[in-house]
Amino acid sequence: MNKFAFVDCTTVDQALAELKDGAVIKAGGIDLLDLMKDGIVTPPKLVNIRNVSSLRGITASKDGLHLGPLATLSELAAHPEIQRDYSALADAAGHAATPQIRNMATLGGNLTQRPRCWYFRSSDFDCKKKGAGSDECHAHEGENQYHAVMNNSTCAMVHPSSTAVPLLAMNAQVEITSKRGKRSVPISEFYVPPEKSLINETVLQTGEIITGIFVPAPESGTRSAYQKYGEKESFDWPLADAGIVLVMEGERCRKAAVVMGVAAPTPIRSQAAEAVLTGATINEATARAAAKAAMQGATPLSQNGFKVQLFQTAIYRTILLAAGQMQRDPSAIG
């Protein structure tokens, strides 16, 4: 790692005051240290917000779920009200990384971790995402079995945040604070596709901190689930993952949200799949049809055609899991 200065902050104001001259925020530190050890980022200063107590905590109230960005993935996964009313979020937080990492990694950090692409993550490669004058995407011509299968023509990276998937399905809001004040961004607008910016993956600007995540309370009859599939049984990055929210009225699905995590450079909703489910009875046939619709228009690269099928399986099985018609898949990453 490069040498850096370190400042331990206890309030948001202090942290904001320190965010200058290339200083970066450190919360759980998992992704940041990973990037620094590999020389991908070399910040001159770390602003430690891990001890800012106002950024901690999980409150489930009538209007919804108020999440401090320092809530750890373990805390989210173990929270009884999240397990009961926002189960896809508990599923996603509880199946990310390893138990040890979940004890350390924060929700804010999980949402803002840098993308997965082995060319981006290797200091041996320049690419257009890293700037530095290169306009290449090595994944397009090179090894791309884990890369995006949709919206991948500019840059084929994937955003690996597990929690972003259910949060997008649940219409969460991200509260962002800077010296200028606060703004609230729907998570559907939080991630920035590579066509808009190759450098920034989110709308977070320099000098801004995530100070809260709000999930509106679910309508009555809401059921949700999240599952992810990878190469290993445990501790693996997803190759395909699905977050499903269904608002049921008896047998009929009144509203549906179908979100895919690592299909594209940002987590995406599939309106096509949601249209299949909305107004329909949830059964194997409609779940399959929705899964198929979600992958319409996929543009797999030379080595990742299998992800198109894997996503259909993930979506189909997770719809049925959310509807209570199927058990958690033992072949999903647990």
Binding site: F6, D8, R50, I101, N103, M104
Partner: peptide, 16 residues
């Protein structure tokens, strides 16, 4: 008391 990774924790961040 909680299992954590010593390789991904800065020594300076373990104060307290």
């Amino acid at each position: 008391g909680t299992p954590a990774l010593a390789c991904m924790t800065l020594g300076i961040d373990a104060v307290g």
